[in-house]
Design a binder for these strands. Sequence first.
DNA 1: AACCAGGACGTGA
DNA 2: TCACGTCATGGT
Length: 227
Amino acid sequence: MTKKSSEKIILLYTLLKKIYGPQGWWPITGKYHPKDYSYPKNNLQRFEIIIGTILTQNTTWKNAEKTVLSLKTKKLLIPKLIIKTSQKKLSEIIKPAGYFNQKSAYLKNIAEFIVKLNAKIPQRNELLKIRGIGPETADSILLYAFNQPEFVVDSYTKRIFTELNIVKTSNYNSIKKIVEESFQSKKETKTVIFQELHALIVEHAKQYYSKKPFGIKDPLKPDFNNI
DNA sequence: AACCAGGACGTGA
DNA sequence: TCACGTCATGGT
């Protein structure tokens, strides 16, 4: 990690926070204040977030949230009930989220894991063994459902970081490590920073990095040219 | 009407 | 490791 990388990452976080404010991005359906970081408050909310991270894979949160709400209305947002429900029925319920055949299987896999977990905090490498849980979903689960200081790297992050010359690599673990090493503070603080930074990056990217040519109208670009 | 969305997985270089 | 095809609905 170069010193400039961390300077740029901290600058990016500062600027994005100033522009968009706190995102409050723990995908819980219900009421909460964006600045309230005391979520999830129980295992049901924790599971709801976990389910959300899978359903939103390569899908808009709007569509994913719709299916989370459907599951909630049907009182299925409980690990044991996800296991009990047939995959066919699950697929039907989560249809708007896309990839329903894959995702319904993934939901069952994570539900099995959560039951066996017995209310402990999962290890990252254990999550990665589950079919349907890749690096981004694993980190999302750890960061938002278990409040662990694991930074989430998504395609937007790679895109913005390379476009703003923050990093040269597009390797997941490399970028994750660079970001995590840029912020040294206590665990709770880092967790909040990582939760907000990832959400802010997504928000910014949706405006300036979703269609080609990427970032051409990004107002932050000049700030990163001569640093 | 092509293109993309808060990816993961399998396969073949 | 890395690039590419596949999975699928809904919005622009």
